[in-house]
């Protein structure tokens, strides 16, 4: 019991920076973008990833499923390629999707990962889950569209547009790495402990609940026009 409290304290400690940094993407970011050049796009991209709980929850779900650093690197790379494609192309070509709809789909990706980790496909549908690498790529494309929608909500002007988009994407990757390091550390350290199954179950049930909650919330915003 004492060990479990210790680990939970560790979890809180690791998530504390995200809580402290949680300023969201605000009009202050617009001012940063207006005045800070390309580095400001890197900063806002990183900030968005660090405070974008839906993206991080999905990645937490992916990491739970994986074993070994190589595996993590492979899946995160596929996710990164996926979201980079739609983030860069979507923003450059000004492809717009409704932000609430795309965020609702991203919420479903969080639910999906929790469901898969809890062997939902085997238990509910009596079938194997779809190829995870492919699903991570597909969800990467969807997450990229969400990021693109957010980036397009800013006034980026017309100069160096592609460079600004790429800078934002670089920021997203840096934010992703910064968020993943403690999460990977915590999960891999906990894996060898007796309390890990309870932690695994608790985290993935939470992903299910969070996915449903975020989905309902986004649909509510969509129906009520934000």
């Amino acid at each position: 019991m004492g060990n479990s409290i210790k680990r939970l304290s560790l979890l809180i400690l690791f998530l504390l920076p995200a809580v402290v940094l949680a300023h969201d993407v605000t009009s202050a970011d617009q001012e940063t973008l207006n005045n800070g050049g390309l580095f400001s796009y890197i900063w806002v991209g990183a900030k968005h990833m660090l405070t974008g709980y839906d993206h991080l929850l999905f990645l937490v779900g992916v990491i739970f499923f994986l074993k070994g650093f190589k595996d993590i690197l492979k899946f995160i790379t596929v996710f990164t390629i996926g979201h980079s494609i739609t983030l860069i192309a979507g923003t450059f070509l000004e492809i717009q999707v409704n932000e609430y709809v795309i965020d609702a789909i991203i919420a479903l990706s969080v639910f999906y990962k929790g469901f898969e980790n809890l062997e939902g496909f085997q238990k509910v549908f009596k079938t194997n889950s779809p190829n995870l690498l492919m699903m991570v790529f597909v969800f990467g494309l969807i997450h990229g569209l969400g990021l693109s929608t957010r980036l397009q909500s800013f006034d980026m002007g017309t100069d160096q547009l592609l460079l600004k988009i790429i800078s934002f994407n670089v920021g997203v990757e840096l934010g992703q790495i910064a968020a993943l390091i403690p999460i990977v550390f915590l999960i891999t350290k906990w894996q060898s402990r007796q309390s890990y199954p309870a932690f695994y179950k608790a985290s993935n049930v939470y992903l299910l609940l969070a996915g449903v909650g975020l989905f309902v919330y986004q649909i509510y915003l969509y129906v009520n026009g934000g």
Binding site: L8, L11, I12, G52, Y53, A198, Y206, A210
Partner: peptide, 20 residues
């Protein structure tokens, strides 16, 4: 976001103790 993260930590903690 901070409300979300604080709520998440509390919920994971509660679920953890429940499953444990």
């Amino acid at each position: 976001s901070y409300i979300f993260w604080v709520g998440s930590i509390v919920m994971v903690a509660l679920l953890f103790f429940f499953f444990r």
